[in-house]
Design a binder for these strands. Sequence first.
DNA 1: GTGAAAGCGCTAACAT
DNA 2: ATGTTAGCGCTTTCAC
Lengths: 343, 343
Amino acid sequence: MVGIKELAQKTGFSITTVSRALAEYSDVSAETRAFIRQTAREIGYQPNEVARQLRRQRSNTLGLIIPTYDHSFSEGFFSQLLHGIGDAAGDARYDVLISARSPGDDELEAYKRIVGGNRVDGIILARTRQHDPRIAYLKQVGHPFVVSGRTAPDEIPDFPYIDVDSQAGIYAVTQHLIAHGHRQIGLILPPPDVAYTDYRRRGYADALSDAGIAYQNEWVFSGDLRRSGGYQGMYHLLDHHPTLTAVVCSNDLMALGAMQAAQALGRIVGRDIAVVGFDDLFDAEYAHPPLTTVRQPIYEIGRRLVDLLIGIIQGHPPQETQILLPTELIVRESCGTHIGKGG
Amino acid sequence: MVGIKELAQKTGFSITTVSRALAEYSDVSAETRAFIRQTAREIGYQPNEVARQLRRQRSNTLGLIIPTYDHSFSEGFFSQLLHGIGDAAGDARYDVLISARSPGDDELEAYKRIVGGNRVDGIILARTRQHDPRIAYLKQVGHPFVVSGRTAPDEIPDFPYIDVDSQAGIYAVTQHLIAHGHRQIGLILPPPDVAYTDYRRRGYADALSDAGIAYQNEWVFSGDLRRSGGYQGMYHLLDHHPTLTAVVCSNDLMALGAMQAAQALGRIVGRDIAVVGFDDLFDAEYAHPPLTTVRQPIYEIGRRLVDLLIGIIQGHPPQETQILLPTELIVRESCGTHIGKGG
DNA sequence: GTGAAAGCGCTAACAT
DNA sequence: ATGTTAGCGCTTTCAC
């Protein structure tokens, strides 16, 4: 392995001069710099990034820790988020360190190792839960971090985050259903410890309430964020409340499972029952039937998280460090907009 | 930041002893070890990973460089591969360093920086192209690496890789179509520089040839790996060769685009024209109509790449370092198995 | 069983 | 414009 010492020897200059020539310092003569750079190329010198990191006390790397146990990855959300993160980080010449840890490991350990171990300049936290211990830890150690999502509505979100306004999103889609004649609308939520669960419930409850419909706890089901959760939810809801004409699901994958369950129970989605999702798939248009969903700018969230984080790292955070992005209602076939319409 | 020095001071032992106590050396007395470990926990000591890496000359990190320019991420393949990689790496207590670089940057630079810069113990190379310069570079510097995919069939694959036997996969699906009466079958390929393109072409050509059908160059179209490529391909093929009854697409996303184009041209997929994909989506079952596809064990590939790479890094590579995994034909509605059948 | 000292490869004061 | 020197925080001989 050729190091800076070899390069210094080869060029006849000192290590210092070589280092500064390569770093474009102005106090190195143009010829010297050119010569050194040329020689570096010739002998294939590549600075040892680890040594540089140790010395400069920064890594130009952003961290992202993924909990593998809950199948985050297969939700699509994570993939798209990572896509945005990767692109924006690349543009800013940052790398991304991913650490996936399974349930056995204490999740917080991973954060301590990565953050306390000086491996990253900042960290992106995703999939917030209620009273998230990771947020508490990062606030305590004072390491730069940004959060995809928020804490639950009853907690004070005193940290930089970017979230989608899912309460408004669920409100809009529920209202849409109501406007098209639905009165008995079910809701399939994620597990209660997921931070955004309560925002979803509120948006749904508000829409019902504003339309003079009573919120009923039995119309709400909590399931895992995968197809299975949607399947179980729809099965349960239709089993106990066969008069429901619509069900709002917390993500597209669950909506697919819900549609499957509805079909298994003899309901035609889009005719007997409306099913809506919450953006998660790369493209819910080609689902069968095409899925009505609340679109979230996931890729955009990833990009902006990185910009925000880098701003914080470099000491020039933007005015706005708590950002709520709007959703967009995409109405497609599964919505069954004709149900109850005019009679 | 609390370092080993502070811990040494606090416990009254030397830095050396502290280091060894934490590393479970046997020549530290049990009580000393317990005491040091306890104190470490109390004052929140976290070893500086960067310093440790510099000293030990390894990082316990695997690298993955993603070319952002060709939308690799949105192909689904990458997401699933990364999922497998992340899980397996996590299980082996390795982190994953992701570097996404856009076209402006010389791609090879990223490899040199990451590999030459000692940031990773091994690197995973994906999306191989014909005469891939990255493979040449990695072979030359002798850094541990594994490849997802192979070089083109006319190159010597003298490096560890895991690929799917796409030639056999395409052969199988083409044969399936032929068995169900199709005689005029189109093929939509990726751009020619993608390494596996020729395997696909061969599988397709072999199936035709074995059935006594002449390979026709005009039935083959090359397009980008996204929906647009499939759309253009199908549009072009049906435009020039309206008698085609089936089209094989190189991935599911392209197949979706192809189905869309067929529908735009007034063809009913599954009745007038059969469309088949090559596994890429998280679940092609819910496409409309449900997509016939050649399933690849993508997640599995990711996992095995990591196992293989770690084996190489640690000096105990398995017997088999060039692995071809089988595909599985999944027949669904879009296949139109009734076409030409018995009539 | 424990400590002193060298050094991983680099950067950045501080000389000159 | 260039060189000397002191670390960054840790691991690992080597002594005792």
